[in-house]
Simulated assay, not measured.
Amino acid sequence: MSPEDLDQADDMDGEDGGAQEILLREAAGLLRELGYTGPLSNEDDLLRSCESGAACQLFTSLCVWLVSELKSVSNLEDNVSPTEGPADSETFQLEMSGVISELHCPCTSLTSNNVTSRLLKPANCLQLIVFLSTELEAARLLKKSNVSTSEPVRHNEDVLYELRLLGKALDLPEISPDVPVTELMRDLENKITELSGMVQMSSPLFKAQLEPEQWETLQELHYSMLKEYECRMRMLVTRFDVTVQSFHWSERAQLKEKSMNEVYSPLRKSLRAESGITIPHLLAAREDYSRILHTCNATTCQKTRSAIQKMLMTGTVPDRGGRPNEIEPPMPTWEKRREGGGKSQHWGKRNKRKRT
């Protein structure tokens, strides 16, 4: 490993940023779904092993486990051998290059540049784990689909929950955990095709064909927008909490504090700072979403008008002032509020320093 490669690995924090955090979460989630229970199940341990890259035995052992699992459910020919120390890092990267080539990896960060310097950045190591995990997940699904449909298949609880929501939205019968995957997907596809012919849908809003580098850029933009949304939402929620707290200051509110909390607590718990919008939402959006409808037009107000909107203020609206540029010195005289009156305070002009 050359000094230039080490310097490149040290500079990875500023280059990857949000994309590395996204890859870390995705890699850890995929490993949990695949049933991995090794020493890198924790995100912190996984990141530390990726920082050392091919020189870390824990990282190479994880890759060996993924490749061996992949060979057991697919026709993969290439293989990688376990390493015994940093001296075997180059050999490991050469063997992993053959596996990646056989799987036709679309990630340019894993297929370009020098073979022995690809797994020096944590982002590239995480990208490799994500790629191998998705390939393993897909291979397992394909193997299950080739099994006889009479054999019952137990679905993951999270997947089953999402499928039940989908079935409820499509007005399908209750989905059983023992339904084979092929039969379930066929029923969903038929129902969606049937409903698509009955409802007029506009064209997709997003029609572009993106390259792997563009997908990575899109993920970074999505991560930045999630952070921006979370920051703004936390600010609004904090303002809301402070406003509600101010209502508890009065003596009457203190007597009704319990009943107020019973109404407020469920509403407050429903306010989440994290956004649930994902990239699949972008892919599913239609051209109708790009049309801006004014909420005050006549058509919309016919359906949304309430008694509050029908109230009109009569007479001239009072001018509350508050414009600093219209206030001229000297400032007005203020009088203390005391019983029997009190001395008034007069505010005079401040001495201005003469310019020389």
Rank of each mutant, 00 (worst) to 15 (best):
E287W: 01
A139F: 03
K71D: 02
L40V: 09
V244R: 13
G341A: 09
R32V: 03
E69T: 04
Q245D: 13
Y289R: 06
A298Q: 13
E4W: 06
S49A: 15
M96Q: 07
V159C: 08
E102V: 04
H155A: 00
R252P: 00
I175A: 01
M313T: 13
E137W: 06
K191F: 00
L163I: 05
Q127H: 07
L160F: 02
T316F: 06
N79M: 10
G340P: 00
R25P: 00
L170C: 02
P204Y: 03
K71P: 01
S68D: 15
Y229E: 10
G197Y: 05
F92D: 01
E21A: 11
P3H: 07
L267Y: 06
K168N: 11
T182H: 01
S2N: 15
G342I: 05
P204Q: 08
Y289C: 11
Q302E: 07
D45F: 09
Q345V: 11
I327A: 07
K336C: 14
L94R: 15
I308V: 12
S52G: 09
Q127L: 12
E137H: 12
A123S: 15
L66W: 08
K168E: 06
S265R: 15
H155V: 00
M233S: 14
R272Y: 05
P152I: 03
D241Y: 05
Y289F: 06
L132F: 13
P106L: 06
T116V: 11
S117W: 03
P180E: 02
L30Y: 12
H222M: 10
L141A: 13
E211H: 12
M185V: 02
R355V: 09
M96T: 09
T149S: 03
S224L: 10
M1S: 11
H155R: 14
V73C: 15
Q57M: 08
K310R: 14
Q345P: 00
V179K: 03
E33R: 14
D171L: 03
Q309W: 10
C105P: 12
E274K: 15
S203Y: 04
C105Y: 04
K303S: 07
